[in-house]
Write a protein that binds this DNA or RNA. Structure first.
Lengths: 206, 206
DNA sequence: TAAGATACACGACAGATTGTCATATGGGGG
DNA sequence: CCCCCATATGACAATCTGTCGTGTATCTTA
């Protein structure tokens, strides 16, 4: 976690540093971004960087957390707009981000995805115990639209949706075929909605 | 990709290097494993390492590819044992690997998972175009057990299963609660089999 | 206002890491 | 016996990391 000093920084300076970091991580893979380049881009001395963050990893983790928070807000808003329909909200999320991507707005996030493909989308779910985030969203989800049999099912489903949606966004960013990525995402949603087991067959996993 | 020189190496030396690398990546996160430590553990000089691999990333990517191949073989075998039941085979895969993990056999792989949590399980699917791997397995899958509506659905489902199963293995390795991880995996499979949408509700993503 | 304390800014530096390269070695072919 | 090619090896320059001693600004207290 960044130091309090970092949070006490004037917003402009703080944002400049974060923006520089996002830009650099979006240009090359994490391992190939030296701290030196970030601080050069941000125009701060080396000592200051290590005053704000324990190390590069600390900064990167904070960036991801930040995206996670953004994501929660978006989903929250989209859920409200869809009267709690979880699947519809996630498809909206994809469309919204894909659109912004084309306009270059969330370009940074997409670039980071592209440059760090080995990153698990799960990092967004896994952060900060994941429970608090889930709890806050659960109230906005219309569960009558869902067929949830166990207490954990909502959490499981949410995890799947995040993974699949983030995967589609990555694919859109990497392959340069946004239409194809969206088509695949919708197919994935169909599987998640209706299930992939033939109705006649008995479930194998008991 | 490793150089031909690497593949021409006497098997013992090659294996020793790979084993050393796996052990080191299982001890600390990728970024924190200097090439120096690997070559020291493997007992080869620095120059040789760079004769075999372009860099650390090249080695790591090869290790993952290798695991991917192992995985394909396992799934192939387990599918045959389950008469093509995809879900059953994947649950077998989980059980087999979890069991071996407890006996310390695939420990290295699990350790690498634990130490590199940000790794996407998708790396296994995404490797080498993914298509060839899928094609080879498709013939062993009994599709009458599945409700596949589109040509790509098998591929999509497979992707989901790999992601979810690998995620469970990671969770088992990280949390130290293998029983819980298995329970969650089974729940995930139920969602994938039966779907999460209430039967009454109309699907939102059309 | 002076003195002292506190927080932050800065960049030089020691230690470690990376990838390269000149040189050494070894065996098969002429 | 010599040449050629593939491989082996570790010294080396360039680079990166995290730390630390030294400035500077602001706030406290008298």
């Amino acid at each position: 976690m960044p130091s309090t000093t970092f949070f006490n920084l004037p917003a402009a300076k703080r944002e400049k540093l974060l923006r520089a970091a996002r830009a650099e991580f979006g240009r090359t893979a994490y391992a190939d971004v030296p701290v030196s380049r970030i601080i050069q881009a941000a125009g701060i001395p080396r000592g200051s960087f290590y005053m704000y963050f324990a190390d590069k990893q600390d900064l990167f983790a904070y960036l991801l957390e930040d995206f996670g928070r953004q994501l929660e807000e978006r989903i929250s808003r989209l859920l409200d707009g869809r009267r709690g329909d979880l699947f519809a909200a996630f498809l909206d999320l994809y469309d919204e981000m894909a659109r912004e991507r084309e306009r270059g707005e969330v370009q940074e996030l997409m670039d980071i995805f592209r440059c760090n493909r080995q990153l698990s989308p799960g990092v967004f779910v896994r952060q900060e115990g994941k429970d608090s985030r889930m709890e806050r969203l659960a109230g906005r989800i219309d569960q009558s639209l869902l067929d949830l049999r166990r207490a954990e099912d909502l959490e499981n489903l949410f995890h799947l949706l995040v993974t699949v949606t983030a995967g589609a966004l990555m694919a859109a960013g990497c392959s340069g075929d946004p239409a194809g990525a969206r088509r695949r995402l919708v197919q994935m949603f169909h599987i998640l909605e209706r299930g992939a087991a033939s109705r006649a067959a008995a479930p194998a996993s008991g």
